[in-house]
């Protein structure tokens, strides 16, 4: 017994000294590809310095709803970083892989960075698009994905609705008419944000693309200068893409601590800076001030404030027979 007691501390020390190789799976949505590529490298360096362990983060990207569904059906995600809280709610509700109050576990509704919906127009803005009311004019073709399949498109739909409410003194019927007219001007409803960007940028369809702010900057970078311009409307929606540890999966893989640290580090100065560089709006006020010139100032409304939360908005607008379906009734 004594020998065991003598050996035990040595054993523990030996185990601790032996650096582990850890694998994390982060299941994310489409436009975060470039951001997490950079963030993962920085986090791995940070974690190595702190604990000596090597972290390799694997990424999976796709439409937000599709990704949530994959996790529900058994994709072994340790963390999810999706486009909207509703999708993570579904993972909590249907598969019970994390507690229902997951959104309270991290600061700022578990959304370490925010974004919004802006317009991308062709160089010189030939149709003179300045704000949402220019999108319902006859002869303007608007490209946006289907809100039923794309998280980004749902934010865009709600932004248009919020603008109409603001313009017409909170008259629901007028807002519905406004949004219906807007969708009459949509020639192509792609299933995802990237598909819509390709339709607009590569295939030359449409006069304006409703797009994530970061995706708009990315499209301009990729297409080169002199092809597209970003137009910021007077009002848009504060998109809060949330992140969460999938407790049951991470627990089973024995990576709960790393997974938690991985998400927490998103709120650090380093994490916030990478987000800002990738055109996500940082939460940290110091970094927000430093990168203020990257982000146009506009009035931003929230889903909680304007629509009473995602579950209500989902049921009201996007569910079967909801307002979006009614727009497309014959």
């Amino acid at each position: 017994m004594k020998t065991v007691l003598k050996i035990l501390p040595a054993l523990v020390l030996a185990l601790a000294a032996h650096a582990r190789a850890i694998n994390l799976l982060n299941v994310s949505y489409d436009p975060t590809r470039e951001f997490y590529e950079q963030y993962n490298a920085v986090f791995a360096r940070y974690w190595k310095a702190r604990t000596g362990d090597t972290v390799a983060v694997q990424m999976s990207h796709g439409g937000s709803g599709k990704q949530a569904q994959a996790v529900i059906n058994g994709l072994d995600a340790d963390v999810v970083t999706l486009a909207l809280a509703y999708d993570i709610d579904q993972i909590a509700r249907q598969a019970k892989l994390l507690p229902p109050d997951w959104q309270k576990r991290l600061p700022d509704n578990s959304a370490p960075y925010t974004s919004t919906i802006v317009f991308l127009v062709r160089q010189g803005n030939p149709k003179h698009i300045k704000d949402w009311n220019d999108l319902v004019k006859p002869g303007v073709a608007v490209v946006t994905p289907n809100p039923k399949t794309s998280g980004g498109a749902r934010w865009a739909f709600l932004a248009a609705w919020a603008y109409a409410l603001d313009q017409y003194g909170h008259d629901e019927a007028k807002a519905r008419d406004f949004v219906a007219r807007l969708y009459k001007n949509v020639p192509v409803l792609d299933t995802g944000a990237r598909g819509a960007t390709i339709t607009f940028v590569q295939h030359g369809i449409g006069d304006v693309l409703l797009v994530w702010e970061n995706e708009a900057h990315l499209a301009i970078q990729e297409a080169g200068a002199g092809k597209f311009e970003i137009v910021t409307p007077s009002l848009s929606i504060l998109a809060e893409p949330p992140v969460a540890v999938v407790d049951k999966n991470a627990g089973r893989h024995g990576v709960l601590t790393v997974a938690q640290a991985y998400l927490k580090y998103l709120y650090s100065d380093e994490g916030q800076e990478i987000a800002a560089k990738n055109f996500y709006r940082p939460r940290n006020s110091k970094l927000a001030a430093r990168y203020a010139n990257r982000f146009a100032r506009l009035k931003l409304v929230t889903v909680e404030g304007q629509f009473g939360g995602w579950r209500k908005a989902q049921a009201n607008f996007f569910s079967d027979g909801g307002i979006f379906d009614q727009i497309y009734q014959p």
Binding site: K66, Q94, P187, T191
Partner: peptide, 23 residues
């Protein structure tokens, strides 16, 4: 396809859109 309901939306696309709504 432009995937517009009633005009250019085929059944498999409609099925996918239901799945993404968790329906």
């Amino acid at each position: 396809s432009s995937n517009l309901p009633l005009r250019t939306q085929i059944v498999p696309v409609l099925i996918m859109s239901k799945l993404e709504q968790f329906d």
